[in-house]
Design a protein around this nucleic acid. Sequence first.
DNA 1: AATGAATGAGATTTCATTCAT
DNA 2: TATGAATGAAATCTCATTCAT
Lengths: 193, 193, 193, 193
Amino acid sequence: MPRPKIEDAEERLLSAGLNLFARLGTERVNTNAIARRARLGIGTFYSHFTDKYALLREIQLRTLAGIRVARLDALARASEQTALQVRRSAQAVVQFARSHPEAYRVTFGRERAGASRHGPVVSESSRPMAEALARLQAAGRIDAALDPELAARAYSSMEIGTLLWWLEDPGRAQEAALVDTLARMHPAVSGGV
Amino acid sequence: MPRPKIEDAEERLLSAGLNLFARLGTERVNTNAIARRARLGIGTFYSHFTDKYALLREIQLRTLAGIRVARLDALARASEQTALQVRRSAQAVVQFARSHPEAYRVTFGRERAGASRHGPVVSESSRPMAEALARLQAAGRIDAALDPELAARAYSSMEIGTLLWWLEDPGRAQEAALVDTLARMHPAVSGGV
Amino acid sequence: MPRPKIEDAEERLLSAGLNLFARLGTERVNTNAIARRARLGIGTFYSHFTDKYALLREIQLRTLAGIRVARLDALARASEQTALQVRRSAQAVVQFARSHPEAYRVTFGRERAGASRHGPVVSESSRPMAEALARLQAAGRIDAALDPELAARAYSSMEIGTLLWWLEDPGRAQEAALVDTLARMHPAVSGGV
Amino acid sequence: MPRPKIEDAEERLLSAGLNLFARLGTERVNTNAIARRARLGIGTFYSHFTDKYALLREIQLRTLAGIRVARLDALARASEQTALQVRRSAQAVVQFARSHPEAYRVTFGRERAGASRHGPVVSESSRPMAEALARLQAAGRIDAALDPELAARAYSSMEIGTLLWWLEDPGRAQEAALVDTLARMHPAVSGGV
DNA sequence: AATGAATGAGATTTCATTCAT
DNA sequence: TATGAATGAAATCTCATTCAT
């Protein structure tokens, strides 16, 4: 009898899931709670997602896409200068995290139990960055002894870990200081010859 | 039929738990499985730990203590030179992770759902390092513009994230390269004046 | 395989619970048994009642309401004469107990362990009766030395205890003799001036 | 190795059990807790009692014996006059309950789950009283229409129920008023011709 | 006789999932 | 398409009881 309104049920579910995941953690949220918060029947949940982790995956994919776009936008507007590009890129991510803290936490946070159930969405691919570092190395712009892949990997972990820590309490650091620290510790900057 | 023979039940449970947590992830392991693997009754589990997360916490505390000791040992043997100390410290942690991959993964890995249930054991405290950086700064040894707390935080995330990634497949990088990368990107080294 | 057919699950559970509680006692019945007897899944039990004691409470509330109604009905039909009202009231309760022996036993019986877990439902309130006795006293109809509250309390215990004993084996006494004894020993009758 | 001292382990267990049963209710006390409170090993419990209910039964038997003795003592000292004997008997029980509230509650209180497991200890035998009433009837001292057994039964319930209620909060009534009410409502008194 | 670690049957409770409406 | 009552496998946790010491 109900049938509330033929609306964006899927969006409602994604939004409800994001909020609950961020507040309670993936494991402490169940499908019934997501459907209830979306003001939809539990059956509706299952006609849109196969399970809780499918919804989580969709949230993560959207977040990763958002970050990619933000980063590319920033780079497009920045000059060719490496140090500036690094800074702009860091700035873009920090801004994204500040604007979408729930999405960032849900996507990168600890307690990603879903990963072990349905394979990781976030492979934390640092491939593009590794390639960029390799190019800089080839151009003699950074220390030849640096391992590009390891360095890229290390930087990614640093960025994610630091942002998650910051989001727990944004009062912990000024946004500008955060960007500065990330940029300084970026291998393309610190590793300069 | 209770009480067949007295044994070191607690150690057996810790070892079984470590193994299962590392292989399956905290959430996919239940108390029954831990007890069974330790070849003990489920009741024995509960007479030693209040729940799964109490056992997890004990594993983590032991791991953290082990790392602390390893790091201090390494520093005690190293000269006073900062760059060398940084390298020795990184080496100690890399060696610890290589020798106790399960413990490292269980302690620092993603999917730390238990943390949200019983409070985090691993605060990933970077306090000591922040203080060391501040001292170096006061001595004019590293850039005054660096924020010691942020930098320490960032380095910790980097170290942990990189080691977790490496442990997934140690073939990904030479141990020496790993140590080298961590040392290079350490703020006390890269941030030198 | 869920959801075979929609039914009045709650009534089925109440009825199954009443029967089992009466036969085995509150503590010897578990939620599984109640659900099984109601031919419902255990999950269905928990979607209707928070636990065993919530179901018990509902049974008790219904029983108390039933007795209240029966007593008021009887009084409404009786004349104003005190002795007759007392007799009619006793009669109403005896009839109720005879017609709903399980409900009476479950509501008033010993072994009300649940009470201590979730607060008593049956406060065995003798307030109304105490007030009635006080009015009769004021009107000089019963001994002024009688303590109305104590007397009301005492009568309630007597009524309940006697009925529980009788229900154990209704052959123990004629219903008429039971009513007669209760009426005779009622303070408004025996305490008359 | 322990072996604390060859003492009255049994008395210690009875005392611990009485205290715990009275505070928590029969069902919420377990054998381990009783042994712990008696500062004895759990094994010792089982070398003295077969289970929790055996200990409960022993407590109840002692209590019943105590009440019997108190009542007989009182009657022995009272004159032959019925009204006085009734009053003395009531007084004796009230005093006993006041002096041994835990024992009284544990013996007569609701939530006698053990009863259903091991058969009732307290049959609430009102046989002696029924016989006394019958004798009084034969002597023409009380109304011939009264059913002695029912009346005895009713009085017992009244006495127990009222005392349990009083023990919940002795401030509820003066001890003298209590004795007075019980005596007044005793069939040998109120039923007098 | 006293001990208490070990036991495991059994009770409670959760929640992903189905399917008749 | 949307619904939500019903389901039961699975997980957690308790506690009476045993028996080697």
